[in-house]
Simulated scan of single mutants.
Amino acid sequence: MKIGDLAKRTHTRVETIRFYEKEGLLPAPGRSGGNYRIYEQAHLNRLSFIRRSRDLGFTLDQVRKLMKLADDRDAPCAEVNAITAANIAEIDRKLADLGALRAELVRRLECCEGPTIADCRIIEALAPDTREGKQRPE
């Protein structure tokens, strides 16, 4: 299949496929007589693995490690578990950050009682402090 077909079947942009090739995540395809990239089922399988891994939040380095581990079917899965645990920890950190962000926005919203923008505490908090050398408190 051509790169456009692979892109459609995996819901991946052509530029992303080329990037994965350049990064060594996806092996270089063969070429047709007209010098088109020709992808096979193995490329489709590997790209699907990459896409699913990325959808689950794994970094490119983690995906690279997971693919290497997946290629060794007899290896113990302890390293896969460690990579997954690290990903979960990062997700938990992001959730905590989002929770703090949400709480701050709710607090700002509850403080805003102004009927006009001139009285809006949210806009005031977002605007730079015009006093020389001053930063707004976080």
Rank of each mutant, 00 (worst) to 15 (best):
R54W: 07
D129P: 11
D97S: 14
G33R: 13
I88L: 08
P128G: 06
K68N: 07
E21G: 06
E15H: 15
A103C: 00
I122L: 06
Y39L: 04
L95S: 10
Y36C: 03
A118G: 08
E124M: 06
G24C: 11
R54H: 13
D71I: 00
A127I: 02
D55I: 03
D61L: 09
E124Y: 10
E79F: 06
A85T: 10
P137S: 12
D97T: 12
E124C: 06
G33A: 14
C111T: 13
F19L: 15
R18D: 05
I38K: 07
R121I: 08
S32G: 05
N35V: 03
E113K: 12
I50W: 07
K8Q: 15
K8T: 08
E138M: 12
V80S: 13
E104D: 10
F49T: 00
N81S: 09
P137F: 02
Y20W: 10
I123S: 09
E40Y: 00
G114P: 08
R108S: 11
Y39I: 02
T10P: 08
Q135K: 12
A89R: 15
N87H: 11
L66W: 03
R9L: 15
P29F: 00
P29T: 01
F58Q: 05
F19M: 09
R93H: 14
D92Q: 13
L56W: 04
V63G: 01
D5I: 09
T116M: 09
D92Y: 08
R131I: 01
K65R: 15
L69S: 05
Y39Q: 06
K65E: 15
D119L: 12
Y20N: 04
A85F: 09
P27H: 07
E23S: 11
E40I: 00
V80P: 04
T12H: 02
L98W: 10
L56K: 05
A85P: 05
D119I: 00
K65T: 12
K94H: 10
R108P: 02
D97W: 04
T84H: 07
E138H: 11
K94V: 04
P115S: 05
G114Y: 11
E90T: 13
S48A: 12
L101Y: 14
D74N: 11
N87I: 00
L56Y: 04
G4L: 01
A96I: 01
I38G: 03
T16F: 01
E40Q: 13
A100D: 13
H11G: 13
E79N: 00
R131H: 09
I91D: 00
A7R: 02
F19D: 07
R52C: 07
L66E: 04
P76A: 12
R18V: 01
R131S: 06
R136N: 09
G114K: 09
L44K: 00
A100G: 14
G30A: 14
L44R: 00
L25Y: 07
E79I: 01
E113Q: 14
